[in-house]
Design a protein around this nucleic acid. Structure first.
Lengths: 154, 154
DNA sequence: CGCTAATCGTTGGTGTACTAACGATCTCGC
DNA sequence: GCGAGATCGTTAGTACACCAACGATTAGCG
C-alpha cells in the first residue's frame, strides 16, 4: 500500500534519519521492558500464582461487586475474548462464579466467591508492595510525575 | 502517595489500606494500558503487518548486522523461546535468513535479506511517527522527562 | 408490532512471553 | 586431553491479547 512511497527527502537526509533511530530509545520498546520488569516483580511477590491480569480482574470485582463479564473486561482493559479466558481460569480455581442474568439472557454475571474475596484481600497488600518495588528505581520526587504522565498516556 | 504506610497490621489499618487500593492508579495496570494504546497506534501505522516485536528484531539486526539468534533476543529483550518464534516467522516471510556458524556449531546466525533490509528501511520512518503519535498526549515539556523516567524503570 | 441495529458471549486463529526440560556443543581448569 | 559447567537452541505447556466471524438476545425506531 505504501510501496509507492517515494522518498520525499534526499538519500542523505533519509540515511541520517535512519541512523538516528535507536531502538532502545523508543517509547514502545521501553514500555515493553518496563512492563516486563514489573511482571517479574509481580510474579515474585504475588500469592497463589495470580497473574497481573487475574489479579486485576479480582481486584476490580472486589471494587465494584458482581458485574457482567463484558463490563468486567472493559473495566480491566481486556477484550471479550481475553476476559473470558481469565474468568474461566478464575472460576476453575474457585475464586469466581458465573451465572446468567434473568432480566437479560445475554449477560453472564461474574462475582467473587468467599474464597475469592479472602484471597484478593490477602493479595492487595502484595499489590501495594509490588507497586512500590516497581517504582523503587525512580528518584523519590519523580514518582508522582511519572504516574501522572503515564496516566495521561493510557 | 502515602507515607502513612501503616506498618502495624491492625484490622483498621488493613481495611483502610484495602479501601485505598484503586486498580486504575497502579503502575502495572497503567503500563499495560499505555502499551496497549501504543500497540494499537503501531498496528495502524506500520507497514507489512509487522508487529512491534518483529519490527524490533529487524531494526536491531539492521543496527548491529548479522547476529546469533540468542544474542538478538538479548538485544531486543526476548527470551530464547520467544525470539525463536519471531525469527521463524520473519524467515518464513523472507525478511531474514538463518545459517549455522562454522566456528561454533551451537550458534544460529541470523541476518536480514535484501528484502528485509529494504523493508526495515521503509518501516523505520513509520517507527518515528509511531513514537511521536504515542507521546502526543503528553504535554510537550513532559515528554523528555517521561522517557527519562521510563528508561530508568526498564 | 416488527425489523434493524446494537450488545453479549463464544470460538478459532495468530502472535507474544515465560518456564521447564532436554540434547548438542563449547570453554575452562586441572 | 578430559570432564564439569556454561551456553545455545528446541520443544512442550500455560497464559495473555487481539481479530474476525458467528449465534443469541435485546433495544430502539418506524
Amino acid at each position: 500500500m505504501s510501496s509507492a512511497q517515494a522518498p520525499a527527502t534526499s538519500r542523505r537526509a533519509r540515511t541520517s534519519a535512519l541512523k538516528r533511530y535507536v531502538l532502545d530509545e523508543q517509547v514502545g520498546f521501553l514500555l515493553r521492558k518496563a512492563y516486563q520488569r514489573h511482571a517479574a516483580i509481580f510474579a515474585a511477590s504475588m500469592i497463589e500464582d495470580l497473574t497481573p491480569t487475574q489479579f486485576a480482574a479480582m481486584a476490580k470485582l472486589w471494587e465494584v461487586g458482581p458485574c457482567s463479564q463484558n463490563r468486567l473486561g472493559r473495566l480491566t482493559a481486556m477484550d471479550a475474548a481475553t476476559i473470558k479466558g481469565i474468568v474461566d481460569r478464575l472460576t476453575r480455581r474457585g475464586f469466581t462464579e458465573a451465572r446468567s442474568e434473568r432480566n437479560d439472557a445475554r449477560l453472564v454475571m461474574v462475582q467473587l466467591t468467599k474464597l475469592g474475596r479472602e484471597t484478593i484481600e490477602r493479595a492487595i497488600p502484595r499489590g501495594v508492595k509490588i507497586t512500590r518495588d516497581t517504582l523503587a528505581l525512580l528518584p523519590r520526587d519523580g514518582r508522582a510525575t511519572f504516574l501522572d504522565l503515564l496516566k495521561k498516556l493510557s
